[in-house]
């Protein structure tokens, strides 16, 4: 007498739970379909737009990595090879030597090399660079703006939410397609790298 009643109860429960399971599955599928429309198959990476950057120095302090994955990058094609380099020397420097008291870079990451009178080549020693952007500010204010901050993708761990982007006052960080991971600003006539979507 009790046996069939129990089994019918179990059957009913089974049916109910199958129904709920199916509807949950449909729900998950629905969400997936909804967002899949906006999905891209490729990957994206974080990059900062030098045109928006105001060199506040937060790239050096806000990155989850120390030293930061943002480094100063030298676009040689834009460089004027100046003797008095606004990115290399402190503003009121009088003698143009590589002496410590003249250098703007706090970690000595910019190397100055004599090429020919009156031109000097500047290279960035990236392992030393902390991404503070002091040189970038100097070069942008007084020179051609050939020194630019960029996220170095060999270092960047590509966080889901970049912690520099969260604190960037100029909103210069965005995700860019993996195929064009740099937003270096070239000379005005040259083609600009495509913006992020």
């Amino acid at each position: 007498m009790e046996e069939p009643e129990n089994s019918s109860k179990i059957n009913r429960r089974k049916f109910l739970s199958t129904g709920v399971r199916a509807s949950v599955l449909i729900g998950i599928g629905g969400v997936a379909a909804l967002v899949a429309k906006k999905a891209i198959t490729g990957q994206t990476v974080w990059q900062l737009d030098p045109a928006k950057c105001i060199q506040c120095g937060r790239c050096a302090t806000n990155c989850v990595l120390t030293p930061s994955a943002v480094k100063c990058v030298h676009v040689y094609a834009m460089c004027g090879y100046c003797d008095l380099c606004g990115g290399y020397f402190k503003p009121e420097t009088k003698t143009l030597t590589t002496a410590a008291e003249n250098q703007l870079c706090p970690t000595n990451a910019i190397k100055r090399k004599f090429i020919e009178d009156p031109f000097f080549e500047y290279t960035i020693d990236e392992p030393l660079c902390i991404g503070c952007g002091k040189c970038v500010k100097g070069c942008g204010s007084f020179g051609n703006g050939s020194l630019q901050l960029q996220v170095r993708h060999n270092i960047c761990v590509n966080c889901n939410q970049c912690s520099i982007a969260r604190n960037c006052p100029a909103d210069a960080f965005s995700r860019v397609p993996l195929s064009q991971p740099y937003l270096l600003k070239q000379i005005a006539e040259e083609k600009k790298s495509p913006q992020s979507p």
Binding site: P67, A99, A100, E101, T107, N108
Partner: peptide, 20 residues
């Protein structure tokens, strides 16, 4: 003074990188 600055600067950089 110049010499002093250079020494302190060297020390500071050393301190920074050693610390890291």
């Amino acid at each position: 003074l110049r010499q002093e600055i250079r020494e302190i600067d060297l020390l500071a950089r050393k301190a920074f990188f050693t610390n890291q």
